[in-house]
C-alpha cells in the first residue's frame, strides 16, 4: 500500500511520519508517534476519549483522517503540563477527585482546555455543554464539572 508523508506539530515539536491511506489521527498518534494519551473508546465519534486540539480547536481524533493535519498543530494531553508543572486543569482534576478509572480523563481535559483557552471564566452551563461529547461511564460528571470551574477561577486568580 502506498504511504503518504505527513508532517505536523505535535505538542510544539515537529514530527514526520508515513501513513497508510485511511488511517485516522488517533492511530497515527498512538501507533506511529507513540503518544498514548488519546484513548480508543468507540472509533465512531461517540465517546470523546480520543479528543485532541487541532490548531486550538477540539476534534475527535478517531474521526479525523491523519492526512488532514498536515502542516497543522496538534495538542494532546501529553503536552498539557509545562515541564514538571501540572496545568491548572490537571491540578483541579486531582484536587476535585475528577477521575475514577481515568480512561475518559485525557478527552475531558482536552475538551476543558479548548473551553478555557477561548473563555477563561465559563458558566456551569457552558462547562456542561463543553463536556457533553465526552462520556464518563463511571458517571463522575459532577466532580469533573466542579474541577473545570475551579481551574477557571484558580487561573483567573493567578492571572
Amino acid at each position: 500500500m502506498t504511504k503518504t508523508p505527513l508532517q505536523f506539530r505535535h505538542n510544539g515539536r515537529d514530527v514526520a511520519v508515513f501513513v497508510d491511506g485511511g488511517v485516522n489521527l488517533l492511530v497515527a498518534l498512538r501507533e506511529l508517534i507513540g503518544d498514548m494519551t488519546p484513548k480508543f473508546g468507540c472509533g465512531q465519534g461517540g465517546c470523546g476519549a480520543c479528543s485532541v486540539l487541532i490548531d486550538g480547536e477540539l476534534h475527535l481524533s478517531c474521526l479525523t483522517l491523519a492526512e488532514t493535519v498536515n502542516g497543522r498543530a496538534v495538542e494532546t494531553l501529553d503536552g498539557l503540563k509545562d515541564g514538571p508543572n501540572l496545568h491548572p486543569l490537571q491540578r483541579a482534576f486531582m484536587e476535585q477527585f475528577a477521575a475514577q478509572c481515568g480512561y475518559c480523563t485525557p478527552g475531558m481535559l482536552m475538551a476543558a482546555k479548548a473551553l478555557l483557552d477561548r473563555n477563561p471564566s465559563p458558566t456551569r452551563a457552558e462547562v456542561i455543554e463543553t463536556i457533553s461529547g465526552n462520556i464518563c461511564r463511571c458517571t463522575g460528571y459532577e466532580p469533573i464539572i466542579n474541577a473545570v470551574l475551579a481551574a477557571a477561577s484558580g487561573g483567573r486568580a493567578r492571572a
Binding site: 484513548k39 501529553d78 486531582m94 477521575a99 480523563t105
Partner: peptide, 17 residues
C-alpha cells in the same frame, strides 16, 4: 493513581506498543 490519570501516563493494556 490520580497523577497518572491526569497526565495520561496510567498504562492501560492497549498502551503497550
Amino acid at each position: 493513581d490520580m497523577l497518572g490519570h491526569v497526565t495520561g501516563t496510567s498504562t492501560y493494556f492497549d498502551d503497550h506498543k
